[in-house]
Design a protein around this nucleic acid. Structure first.
Length: 340
DNA sequence: GCGTGTCA
DNA sequence: TGACACGCC
C-alpha cells in the first residue's frame, strides 16, 4: 500500500506540542483502516455492537480526535472519492489478499492459534461504505470538519496543505508528497507503542515530519522527477513497478534520463504517463469549509451509546475532555493574538 | 489504538 | 509516576 520510498525520505522527529494550534488534514481512509485492523480482540474479531455492526473505527476516531484536540491540534478528515480507473488492478490485488487472509484466519481459529488468527484477521480488514458513513456521522456530532475529496483523499489533503488551508497532511503513506504536500506528518498518535510483526516486542513510535523540500533537496530531484522515481519503483496505480528496479537504481535512472518513463512505457501494460499526469494534476475541490464546533453531546451519546452500545461513562468522560480541550484551544488562540 | 486498573 | 495487562464493543 502506498509508494515504497520511505528509505529515500528524510524525516524529522516531532513532539506533539510542536503541532499546537495547527490545522492538520488527516487521510480518513488511512486512519479508519488502521483502527479497523488494530482495534480487535485477541482472536482477531473487531469490536461490534449488539447488532453485529463493527465499531472499532468509531472507538479509534473518538479517542484519537480527543487526544489531538487536547494537544491543541485542529484535525480535518479527508475522505476518498471515486478512485481513478487505473487503480483497479491494485484494488483487485487487495481484495484477493483479503480473501486469502480471511481463509487463513478461519484455519488458525480452528487450530486455536490466537496469535496467527489475529494476524490474518487484521489483513482481512475491509473498509466498507457503512464504516465510512458512521465515521462521518461521528465527526459531525463531535464538531470536527471533514472533506469529501472528488478522487484520492491524499491528493485533496496535499492540495489543502499547499494552499495553506492546513499546516500539513497526515497519513502513514508517502503518496501525498507526490501530490505536492509541503509537509507530511506520519505516526500522528499519542500512545507511541507499536508491536513488531512476529515477536512480542514493542517499539516507541514518535510522530515524524517530512518536508517535501528536504526530500527533493536531499535527492537532488524536482517533484516531477520524484514522481517518475515513484512510478519506476511502483505506486498504487502500477503495483510492483518496473521489474528489477529498486529505489537505488531507479534514482540513478531518473537523475540521468530526461524522460525515464519512455523506455519502460513500451513494455508496460499501464499508461505510465497518465499516472504521472495524475500525480501532477489530480482532481481536487475547493468546496469545503473548515469549522471546528462544540460537540453535540446528546447526539454523540445517542449515536455511540444508544445505537452502538458504547459505555455511557466512558463517552461522557471523553466528551468532557473534548469540551475542555476546545475551550483551552480557544484560550490559546486568543492569548497568541493579544501577545502580537 | 486507546482507556483504565493494578502494582511497584 | 511509569510500566504493564487487559478489555473495550
Amino acid at each position: 500500500m502506498g509508494v515504497p520510498i520511505g528509505e529515500l525520505v528524510s524525516k524529522k522527529e516531532l513532539e506533539l506540542e510542536n503541532l499546537n494550534g495547527r490545522k492538520v488534514a488527516i487521510d480518513a481512509f488511512n486512519a479508519i483502516y488502521q483502527f479497523l485492523s488494530t482495534i480487535r480482540q485477541r482472536d482477531g474479531t473487531p469490536l461490534m455492537d449488539s447488532k453485529g455492526r463493527i465499531t472499532s473505527h468509531l472507538s479509534g476516531l473518538f479517542y484519537r480526535t480527543i487526544n489531538l484536540t487536547e494537544a491543541g491540534i485542529k484535525p480535518v478528515y479527508v475522505f476518498d472519492g471515486k478512485p481513478p480507473e487505473f487503480k483497479k488492478k491494485e484494488l483487485e490485488k487487495r481484495a484477493e489478499a483479503r480473501e486469502e487472509a480471511r481463509e487463513k484466519w478461519e484455519l488458525a481459529l480452528a487450530r486455536g492459534d490466537l496469535e496467527e488468527a489475529k494476524k490474518y484477521a487484521q489483513r482481512a480488514s475491509k473498509v466498507n461504505e457503512l464504516l465510512i458513513e458512521d465515521a462521518k456521522k461521528l465527526l459531525e456530532l463531535m464538531g470536527i470538519p471533514w472533506v469529501q475529496a472528488p478522487s484520492e483523499g491524499e491528493a485533496q489533503a496535499a492540495y489543502m496543505a499547499s494552499k495553506g488551508d492546513v499546516w500539513a497532511s497526515a497519513s502513514q503513506d508517502y503518496d501525498s508528497l507526490l501530490f505536492g504536500t509541503p509537509k507530511l506528518v506520519r505516526n500522528l498518535t499519542i500512545t507511541g507503542r507499536r508491536k513488531l510483526p512476529g515477536k512480542d516486542v514493542y517499539i516507541e513510535v514518535k510522530p515524524e515530519l517530512i518536508l517535501l523540500e528536504d526530500v527533493l533537496n536531499g535527492l537532488k530531484l524536482t517533484r516531477e522527477k520524484l514522481i517518475e522515481l515513484a512510478i519506476l519503483v511502483g505506486t498504487d496505480y502500477n503495483p510492483g513497478g518496473i521489474k528489477g528496479l529498486g529505489p537505488k537504481k531507479a534514482l540513478e535512472i531518473v537523475r540521468h534520463s530526461k524522460d525515464p518513463l519512455l523506455k519502460y512505457q513500451k513494455t508496460s501494460d499501464v499508461d505510465l504517463y497518465a499516472i504521472k499526469e495524475f500525480f501532477l494534476n489530480p482532481p481536487v475541490t475547493n468546496e469545503y469549509k473548515l469549522e471546528w464546533k462544540m460537540p453535540d453531546e446528546e447526539g454523540v451519546l445517542r449515536f455511540l451509546c444508544d445505537e452502538h452500545d458504547f459505555s455511557e461513562e466512558r463517552v461522557k468522560n471523553g466528551l468532557e475532555r473534548l469540551k475542555k480541550a476546545i475551550k483551552a484551544g480557544k484560550q490559546f488562540t486568543l492569548d497568541a493574538w493579544f501577545k502580537k
